[in-house]
Computed example of a mutant assay.
Amino acid sequence: MTPAPHRRGTPAALAHRGFSREGAENTLDAFRAARDLGYVWVETDVNTTSDGVVLSFHDDTLDRVTGRSGEVSNLTWEQIRSERVAGAGCITRLADLLTELPELKLNIDVKDEASVTALPSLLHELGAVDRVRVTSFSESRRRRTLRRLRELAGRSAPTSSGQGGMRLLLVCSWLGGPSWGLARRVAARWIEPFDTVQIPRRHRVRGGVEVELVTPRFLDFAHRHGIHVHVWTVNDAAEMAELLELGVDGIVTDRADLLAGLLEQRGQWPPSGG
């Protein structure tokens, strides 16, 4: 199989939870820092409080980034709002991110069950459906979030596959031939269609063996079926360059500064809004 050619367009650049070298992830300051570097797309996560406030927050508990214990789903916004992330910025409501930084587009990972209904309602209320890509590691949450969004807004948002869709695409790329069309029809009840797959470059399997996932064969297969491939989370400039030469369509990174610098050297900065 012929390797995927290098794509000369502008790759998607996604600042993972914004940009903060101090660990103040998913805060307005981190998202502003990414914007100031020239980013159009940022990656974020959502969890929802007990009183229905959608947060830009990765974990289901406060423990790791605030030092306070407690599950987000068991706390109200009033109980959470004064907490600091890495001792710096406050926890961010998704509504504030959308309204205070209207120039940004958001790749949103739905982390919890409450967000399946709360997120579509918020996006519809703020008219922000066209500014997001919706994804989740859970295919069920992704599918139900997208369907609820269609019910409210009359249209869906761009979407990246969950784990089930990613695995299906990987298996079909190994099988080759007409496998994808058949697999999509068989799995249609469980796996919502997707235009993008966001995937690690490698995966460690039993015995500690690392398997290369993002290969020329996989990229060629995905591109032939109209699926963009974004790789996460890449923080080394040399590896970023390797992946871009390989033909990936986008990179998700904690080191938004390094990726911006590399793309500028390649004449691919600033990024497009696509």
Rank of each mutant, 00 (worst) to 15 (best):
L104R: 01
G181W: 04
I108F: 13
S161L: 13
L146S: 03
H124C: 11
E100D: 11
R148G: 12
S140K: 14
G154V: 04
W174C: 05
K105G: 04
V116R: 07
S136G: 05
R167Y: 08
L146H: 03
V116Q: 06
A114R: 12
M166A: 13
K105H: 14
E103A: 13
L175G: 09
S138M: 07
R185W: 10
R167H: 02
L101D: 03
F137E: 12
C90M: 01
A157G: 00
H124M: 08
L170K: 05
D130T: 14
W174A: 10
V110I: 12
L123W: 02
A114N: 12
A118I: 12
R150N: 05
A114L: 14
R184K: 09
L97H: 12
P120M: 15
L122Q: 09
E113S: 14
G176M: 13
A88V: 02
S173I: 14
S138G: 13
G164H: 00
L169V: 11
A188W: 02
V116W: 07
L169M: 10
G127W: 02
L101Y: 02
A118S: 11
L146F: 04
G165L: 13
V116T: 11
V116L: 12
A153Y: 01
R184G: 09
R142Y: 09
L97K: 05
G127R: 03
R155C: 12
L104M: 02
S140A: 15
A183L: 10
P178R: 15
D112A: 13
S161D: 08
R184P: 07
I108K: 04
L119M: 13
A114H: 05
W174E: 11
R148K: 09
R142H: 08
L170S: 04
R155M: 12
V171T: 13
R142V: 07
L97V: 09
V134I: 15
I91P: 06
E139V: 10
L170D: 10
E139L: 06
T99I: 12
E100L: 14
R143Q: 10
E139Y: 06
L101G: 02
D109H: 15
E151I: 08
A183F: 01
A88E: 09
R185I: 14
T145Q: 07
R131F: 10
S179Q: 07
E139N: 09
D112H: 10
S179Y: 07
V129H: 00
A153S: 06
R142C: 11
H124N: 10
L146G: 03
V129T: 04
F137P: 03
L169D: 08
A187P: 00
R93Q: 13
W174R: 06
V116H: 06
T159F: 02
R147N: 08
L98F: 02
L182N: 01
L149V: 04
G176L: 12
C172T: 14
S138K: 01
